[in-house]
Write a protein that binds this DNA or RNA. Structure first.
Lengths: 153, 153
DNA sequence: TCGAATGTTTCGATGTTCGAAATAAAAAAC
DNA sequence: GTTTTTTATTTCGAACATCGAAACATTCGA
């Protein structure tokens, strides 16, 4: 059926465009905010820290695809800038547990707000049942990416 | 209404996850392909070249957010690896016009196939009318990002 | 207790990116 | 028609991110 093939191509083109540009826009939006001193990659480190209770350095490294040694230098910078705290676990003193400072939590909330804004534009014109359709579609994509990720690591 | 707020949060969480991971998966997928010698950023340069007729170096630089000087070295590498061709415009001999080699076109088609695969997982479970709903939602998001991009540059 | 395993850090090397200055060609000014 | 200015690209040197191997500290297991 030609109509649905066209729709597929249009969705594909838009999706490619969105994927290619969202990172740069996120970066620019950070640069225009009160937090000009962190990059998008640093933002992802902050987000990874905030999403788990007290992750170790290497757990965060795995999430953001950095080697442990790169993680050390990245955390050094974020500590120096005042976004992240390091402290040795007292149960296992080899581990470094990471946490956010107040400033770290603030910038993370700003990052969350940015993403909520995007989602708002995605679904704002939809009624409840159409939102469920979109949710279902995105969950399928997410699951596929998750499986790919797992089969690679 | 509580139900739609929950749906919003679920869509938002999934979308954040997809945005955060699609780049890494794309990179890993490249690394597992016949084209292990190009990075995702180099892939974006190749895609930008292929999407315009005979773009100049600085036009491509703008699309992929590199400075002209960085573009020079990036193109050097892609020429050396055999993906890109440089040639001076004959109408204006200051300009360098970029094009893909055969190998460049092949890797671009592989990249296209990867994205089509993603789109396939996004929409595969949907009937035609639901596909239109999803298309509409993504077009809204794309338009918003496009406006943001334009208001920044 | 001692050796292996684990988590982190240090160090040196590589690669990417940038900005300023250099180069080359075209366009504008005179 | 020559000179000046603008435009597109490149070169050079510096800054930064990332990595792998080795070092270090700590815990676990034989």
């Amino acid at each position: 059926m030609v109509a649905s093939e066209d729709t597929f191509e249009e969705i594909n083109d838009a999706l490619v465009d969105v994927f290619n540009n969202v990172g740069w826009i996120e970066e620019a939006s950070l640069h225009n905010s009160d937090f000009k001193d962190i990059s998008l990659k640093e933002m992802h480190i902050i987000a990874a820290i905030s999403m788990y209770k007290e992750p170790s350095a290497s757990e965060v490294a795995k999430i953001v695809h950095l080697t442990p040694s790169s993680m050390t230098t990245a955390v050094d910078k974020l500590v120096k800038k005042g976004y992240v705290e390091r402290r040795r676990s007292q149960s296992d003193r080899r581990m470094v547990r990471l946490g956010l400072t107040h400033r770290g939590r603030v910038v993370y909330r700003a990052h969350q707000a940015f993403h909520r804004h995007l989602t708002h534009y995605l679904v704002d014109s939809l009624d409840v049942s159409d939102m469920r359709v979109v949710e279902d579609a995105i969950l399928h994509l997410q699951e596929y990416l998750h499986n790919l990720n797992h089969s690679i690591n």
